[in-house]
Design a binder for these strands. Structure first.
Length: 268
DNA sequence: CATCAACCTGATCA
DNA sequence: ATGATCAGGTTGA
């Protein structure tokens, strides 16, 4: 399969997709998008801009070439690629990506989705059942409503981010022109962004496919599968060298694999 | 550079 | 039932 909606939209890289029966519903920009899996891809309802969807799914990537590259490098990831054929890295909007991953720090998936859903409902536009992700200006204008969103200490970071972007103190397009290393270094200066979020934004928001985000789950997997442990920097170096220019794809497969039911050489 | 408690909130577990 | 711990981390000392 070329593109799997279940794996791509269900692996946790994007937080606003909902599976209803056999279709996936999400919001991209100001449109509610409905996707239905086909044999080799998907059908799309809700937009006339097909190019936008193809870009979001990175459909022009030579996916077999990418799979083959990481397959060669590691036999365990190779089995995961076989198992989860069609998993893709998405190319998300940079603002939405930074914002959602700042909100996602130190929270579980369920809570992340709840926080983001609340933020959209309080500050975004009603599209009819679903809400747009608010612009930085909308966040600032409706900042008082964020008190209802249960964001905890993330609220101030979120508002500060919106302000800095709105005033052009942070220029998302300029960051998009940087190399992976420069991109990470720039993102790290933003309050609320540490190494993990910087890697997530580099990968999902700016398309640096060699970024390898390391969260608690990946940390456990790196220990369980490869016997590696250490600081973020050490694990990052090991993973990026091992998996190469498409390390981000390898990370997605590792993340999606279920450590609890797999056979590992080390105990978790 | 490495270490570590504190941090909002909510769910799970003992 | 009530307290500890953990969850897609980051901050500041």
């Amino acid at each position: 399969m070329n593109i799997s909606l279940d794996y791509t939209l269900g692996c946790g890289q994007a937080h606003r997709w909902i599976k209803r029966d056999d279709t996936w519903e999400g919001v991209i920009g100001n449109e509610i998008i409905t996707l239905t899996q086909t044999d080799n891809g998907f059908e799309c309802d809700g937009t006339s801009n097909e190019n936008m969807i193809l870009n979001y799914f990175r459909a022009k990537d030579n996916i077999q070439n990418i799979y083959n590259d990481i397959r060669r490098r590691d036999s365990y990831v190779s089995t995961l690629i076989h198992k989860y054929q069609g998993m893709r890295i998405l190319k998300q909007d940079s603002w939405e990506c930074i914002a959602t991953y700042i909100l996602a720090t130190n929270a579980n998936i369920k809570r992340i989705r709840q926080m983001i859903g609340m933020v959209c409902k309080e500050c975004g536009e009603d599209l009819g059942g679903r809400y747009s992700f608010p612009t930085p200006e909308e966040v600032i204008m409706k900042a008082d409503r964020l008190s209802n969103c249960r964001l905890g200490y993330r609220r101030q970071r979120f508002i500060e981010l919106a302000k800095r972007i709105s005033t052009n103190d942070i220029d998302l397009n300029t960051i998009g022109k940087l190399s992976y290393e420069e991109c990470v270094q720039t993102l790290l200066k933003i309050k609320g962004i540490g190494p993990k979020v910087a890697d997530c934004v580099s990968l999902f928001g700016y398309g640096h496919l060699d970024a390898f985000p390391i969260d608690t789950r990946i940390t456990k997997i790196l220990w369980a599968v490869y016997g590696k442990h250490g600081s973020y920097k050490q694990l990052s170096k090991f993973s990026r060298e091992k998996f190469g220019k498409y390390a981000g794809y390898a990370q997605e497969f590792l993340y999606y694999s279920n450590p609890a039911t797999s056979t590992f050489s080390h105990k978790i």
